[in-house]
Simulated scan of single mutants.
Amino acid sequence: MFRKLVIPGSIVLASMAMLGSPATAAPPVQLSGAIFTTDASGNPVNLNIYDSKEDVYLNGGPGINAPDDAAGLPVGTYSFQVTDPSGQTLLSTDDVTCRQFTVDDSGVITSVTPSGNCAHQTGAGGNASEDGGISVQLFPYNDTPNNGGVYKVWVSPTNLLDCDAPGNKNCFVPRYSKVDNFKVRNNLIVEIDVRFWKNGTAMDGYAATWTDTNGASNIKYSEWNPAVLAFHEAHFEAVEPGTHGIRVESQPGCTITSVLLPTGKVVKASRGWASVSVTVADHTEGDHTYWVDVTCA
């Protein structure tokens, strides 16, 4: 039995056995865990800016600087794609069946076996990697049409790919997808940085959830890592123009009381969480950081 996945510029006929069947039960509102781009060693790259398309690898797991009890991606088989920031232009050039990997119960990427003979190259794993899992090369994919040099990688459970879902991006449904933005050979910095403050001190290891302009999401953790220009922030790099969401929740050692937005507006936390919007302009020259400052009690 075959299911037709309609993808801009091509039609992919994929076996249900290879891609999985559509979910019959209601899927989770949001996947746990996070994804992030790295180099082949599985470690982060300064500001998510790479020298070549071949240098960009995908990593999974709870996320950079996550606490020990943070959740990773749920166990299962996943598919990925590379697009422009809007998700409208598919840049990955091989069949989606070649872009699959598995996650074990530790929440990290462990294998590209589901992709068979056309599987993507993998990088270092184990102690060489940021999260202990393997990294998966995103190449091959075309150049982005975005004038800021921005690319977006998507990851979704294979059985939740749905070419008929409203708002799907090449069969990837935003609300069931994790995303991360990156750049190639473009050094302009446009980012949303979330900081957590308690009694005037910036704190590391605290989670912020980013929802992009398409409705897909990811989680990053505040960290101190000068080597990648992280100075107590949770970095969301290479963000596209438009309105983004940032959600923060109370965590051990941080009972959230308020959030200061880049506009100067202060939003009070309610019931231990706050959800705010950040509007990113179309920056064509000059670096820009949108600061979101969270106050903890």
Rank of each mutant, 00 (worst) to 15 (best):
A70Q: 10
G149M: 02
S86G: 13
P145C: 07
V173A: 10
I192A: 04
V276E: 10
T295N: 15
A230F: 02
L229T: 12
L261W: 02
V12T: 10
E285W: 09
F139Y: 12
F36S: 07
A216F: 07
T144V: 01
T209R: 15
V267K: 14
L160C: 06
L161V: 07
S258T: 12
G107I: 03
C163Q: 10
R247A: 14
V194C: 12
V228T: 13
H232S: 15
V292L: 13
S222V: 01
I35V: 15
P74C: 09
T284K: 14
R99N: 15
G272C: 12
I109D: 06
L90D: 08
Y206K: 01
T279Q: 13
D287Q: 12
C163S: 11
N181D: 06
T211L: 09
E54Y: 09
P166N: 11
P27L: 03
F80E: 02
P226N: 08
D51G: 14
G87Y: 04
L91G: 05
T93S: 14
C254L: 03
P67W: 00
S111C: 12
H232R: 13
N146I: 00
D204F: 00
V179N: 12
D104G: 05
A25D: 08
T213A: 12
S106T: 12
M16H: 04
F236D: 00
G116H: 05
L90E: 08
D55W: 00
D180C: 06
H232E: 05
S32M: 03
V12M: 11
N187D: 11
D164K: 14
T158N: 15
Y141C: 09
I256L: 11
T201K: 13
W210Q: 10
S129Y: 04
P8E: 07
T263D: 10
N127W: 04
Q251C: 08
Y176S: 08
P145S: 05
S79F: 01
I109Y: 08
N170W: 05
G286M: 03
V266D: 04
T97V: 11
E223R: 12
A66E: 06
K178Y: 01
F236H: 02
M1N: 13
S275Y: 09
V155L: 08
D105T: 07
Y221H: 11
W197D: 07
A26F: 06
V6L: 09
N43Y: 05
N199T: 07
F139R: 04
A238D: 00
A14Q: 10
E223A: 14
L161Y: 03
A40K: 15
V228C: 03
A230V: 05
N65W: 00
G264N: 13
G123T: 07
F2T: 15
D84R: 01
I246M: 10
A23Y: 08
N43L: 15
R185V: 02
A124Y: 10
S41V: 06
I256F: 03
A207C: 00
Y206T: 00
S52T: 13
V82Y: 02
V45H: 00
V280Q: 10
E130W: 04
S10P: 01
A71R: 13
Q121D: 10
M18R: 15
P74N: 06
V82I: 11
G72Y: 02
T77D: 04
T38S: 14
V228I: 14
I246D: 00
S86F: 01
A70T: 02
L138C: 10
I35N: 00
G126I: 05
A26L: 13
D55L: 08
L13K: 09
Y78L: 12
Y151Q: 04
S32Q: 13
D95C: 06
R175M: 08
S111Q: 05
G63P: 07
P67E: 02
